[in-house]
């Protein structure tokens, strides 16, 4: 497992797309931070996040959601390139358990998530501080729920990596995998809302499916984490929903990766 990880890290650091994705992420973060700080300063009262004690951090939190799609693309490209180059054969013929080969990719994706999280924090904080000049409130105080939010964000990024790897190991072609990933995540972000409408308006039940879908949970964490302390009921819900999707996609991904020909 150690050797697999070593080789996978070497491979990903030698790809162009790792650096391209990192650059795009930084670009997004800077753009969004600067524009929202400038807009926020003009319409002070409309932007709730500036009322909190730590202005620059609220922009940073919002930028965490930029990571998900880019990280998924990176994971898909990484796994699919092994199939398209045929290099998966070089690993799979050496008697490593297939589970380990797959998990090694997952851990590399997870490490990239940590790296991108740090990169997002650095680029968002620095650019919003520069854009805000002296006018942003409380630059330097850390949000009280920082550690919790970071942990939950990382947990949900792991879900995104796992979904991307599952699709990549099922489809194997990078173009097709990316298309399927985009279509699937679009569907999963609005279908539950439609169902919610149906349940509320037609069946008159007070129940929301979308709260139990990972997309909504991740949005809640990144968009609302800063304004309030997260209620413990929500934390439990996040952990359960994230854990469910993580386990499900890992099991499906590993199962198919193990059973299919390479």
């Amino acid at each position: 497992m150690g050797r697999l990880l070593c080789v996978d890290f070497y491979k990903i650091f030698r790809t162009k797309f790792f650096y391209v994705v990192s650059l795009i992420l930084v670009g997004f973060n800077v753009l969004i931070s600067v524009t929202s700080v400038l807009a926020g300063l003009r319409n002070y009262e409309k932007f709730a996040f500036f009322e909190s004690k730590s202005g620059a951090w609220s922009v940073t939190y919002a930028n965490f959601s930029n990571i998900a799609l880019l990280l998924a693309i990176l994971s898909v490209l990484f796994l699919c390139s092994e199939f398209s180059h045929g290099t998966m054969k070089n690993i799979a013929t050496k008697g490593f358990p297939r589970e380990f080969i797959y998990l090694s990719k997952f851990f590399v994706g997870l490490s990239c998530a940590v790296f991108y999280l740090l990169l997002t924090i650095a680029s968002s904080l620095i650019s919003s501080l520069i854009a805000g000049g002296n006018r942003l409130p409380s630059y330097y105080s850390l949000p009280s729920n920082l550690a919790l939010t970071l942990l939950l964000t990382l947990f949900f990024l792991a879900v995104y990596v796992s979904i991307a790897l599952m699709i990549a190991s099922l489809v194997r072609k990078s173009g097709n995998s990316l298309a399927i990933y985009v279509v699937a995540s679009t569907l999963i972000s609005f279908l539950p809302d439609l169902l919610d409408n149906f349940i509320r308006n037609t069946l008159n039940w007070d129940f929301s499916i979308s709260s139990y879908v990972y997309v909504r949970c991740f949005n809640e964490i990144t968009q609302m984490g800063i304004v309030s302390n997260i209620p413990s009921a929500d934390i439990v819900r996040y952990v359960c929903v994230g854990g469910f999707f993580l386990a499900l996609t890992l099991i499906i991904g590993i199962y198919y990766f193990r059973e299919r020909d390479i």
Binding site: R3, L4, C6, V7, Y10, K11, R14, T15, K16, H85, G86, T87, M88, K89, N90, I91, T93, K94
Partner: peptide
């Protein structure tokens, strides 16, 4: 067991030595 199956498989954007390094690292 060393194998070459169907077509030789390597990372196309790396040099011969880097490709050998990957396989060496994997088996050390």
């Amino acid at each position: 067991v060393g194998t070459v199956i169907e077509a030789p498989a390597f990372v196309p954007h790396l040099s011969a030595r880097d490709n050998m390094y990957i396989q060496w690292k994997l088996l050390s």
